[in-house]
Design a protein around this nucleic acid. Structure first.
Lengths: 250, 250
DNA sequence: CTCGAGATTTAACTTAAGTTAAGTCGCATA
DNA sequence: TATGCGACTTAACTTAAGTTAAATCTCGAG
């Protein structure tokens, strides 16, 4: 720090999403930030609804979402889809690769997705040379588990209405961490059928519940954007546990 | 190898479950095996249905299941329970700890659970000194994700009957890897209400479906033991993807 | 052997969500 | 400006699973 005055510990908005994400949890050195940026040199664009990882196929690369969203999902034999999780900017896919290097899920782009493609060997480099980033990646993994646990709770034990509230709150909290919310507003690039497949419901029922939510004054939608009218009230309704996605600095 | 003749690459049955589990995937050296055993010196017993990890509380230790089963679960405000996953012998809990070191789930013992309690710092030692074990732990993590993904598919998109078949197949495959099956038989230390809470169903409905399965000749139960009469047929019914839990050696 | 708590079973009834099908809307393209 | 496809909406009807409650089983403690 040459100026000697620190006005904001967080990395600037211009930095990549993963830097913003990890920087929200711990102070990153210039070296760590530039290493993270160097990981993300090789980029690809993925079209809407196009797979870039396929269940059962070789998974040779690790990906970091640099912008846009991705979905991880599974299919039943009759073609029904279960979305397992949403990958948002700064999220890592394929960090833990099994010995067989076969994927156990599909992943596809949503709307406009841009990915950084990384040689998995470089993640080993992280654990040897960058202990802070290594801890950061471990935190990302713990976070993924927390998110998947919440997804299981939603799928198994919440009503359709609460499922929707709970998922919207998860997305809002995760997007806020990487500075991609505008107050109570955020961009939701999902069709109703995507919400249905994430929550184990039919598209018709999602439609009914969304209308109930609008009528109850809980949300407002405009194009691809959605506003959560009263976050606290919705947290109450959905029994959302904010500590699972808590923001803080060590 | 002093004898020069290798009769069986797998660690003997006398070794601990995590050695059997990792040994099923890769050849472990004597040093690696004895390190794993040394990790598991400090053991505790956990009573049936008693929590050893609590949602929101500090998580200061990493655990390895040495015998018996554990459940990871969440509760809704009105006390309904969603079991996220079963931890079987050789499974690790709390491997990835977030910066805050707060748990995002509860964990409790089932039947007779014995755990090894480990200082989380020792898992860092693994990544620095034991690259094969480090890869093994990474494989464990990938496997946990695959298991949670299958759980989400079950909860969101399978019928009650298929849910049950699918879960029983998962447990059979996982137990077989650590040599805890007896052909088509395995010990199932769960009450019907535990199955219900794992599958997002009511205990009454689990009872109905179990009876249908018995009548269809798919399973036989005796005390705490269960037999899958025709694994292949059940795999077909449940649309179970065995490659998600594939056994193989590198 | 008896008792009692917990677990399982059974039945009657309810309900949340699914299915199907026929609209309507919105927007990108010709 | 017209056209057509995908997304959304609405309604009527079906169904899988939940709820409640009572009966039965099981097995360990006394």
């Amino acid at each position: 720090m040459s100026t000697g005055i620190v006005t904001d510990l967080r990395p600037p908005e211009s930095s990549s999403a993963i830097v913003r994400k990890l920087g929200a949890m711990t102070l990153l050195s210039e070296m760590e930030i530039s290493f993270l940026e160097s990981l993300q040199i090789n980029r690809i664009q993925v079209e809407d609804q196009v797979d870039f990882i396929q269940d059962g196929q070789d998974l040779k690369a690790t990906f970091i979402v640099t912008s846009g969203w991705a979905i991880r999902y599974l299919l039943t034999e009759d073609g029904r889809r279960q979305i397992l999780s949403f990958a948002l900017p700064g999220d890592i896919l394929g960090l833990h690769i099994n010995f067989q290097r076969k994927s156990t899920y599909n992943a596809a782009g949503i709307h406009d997705l841009e990915l950084a493609v990384i040689d998995p060997l470089r993640t080993i480099e992280v654990s040897q040379k960058y202990p802070v980033l290594s801890a950061g990646f471990s935190w990302c993994t713990a976070r993924e588990f927390a998110i998947l646990g919440d997804q299981a709770l939603r799928l198994g034990r919440l009503s359709a209405f609460k499922k929707l509230c709970h998922l919207l709150l998860e997305l809002w909290h995760r997007l806020r961490l990487i500075n991609e919310t505008d107050g109570p507003w955020f961009e939701l690039p999902l069709r109703q059928i995507d919400l249905a497949d994430a929550l184990g419901l039919s598209n018709v029922h999602i439609n009914r519940q969304l209308q109930d939510m609008r009528r109850a004054g809980l949300i407002t939608q405009q194009k691809n954007w959605i506003k959560i009218e009263e976050v606290e009230k919705m947290i109450e309704i959905a029994e959302f546990d904010t500590s699972h996605l808590a923001e803080f600095r060590i």
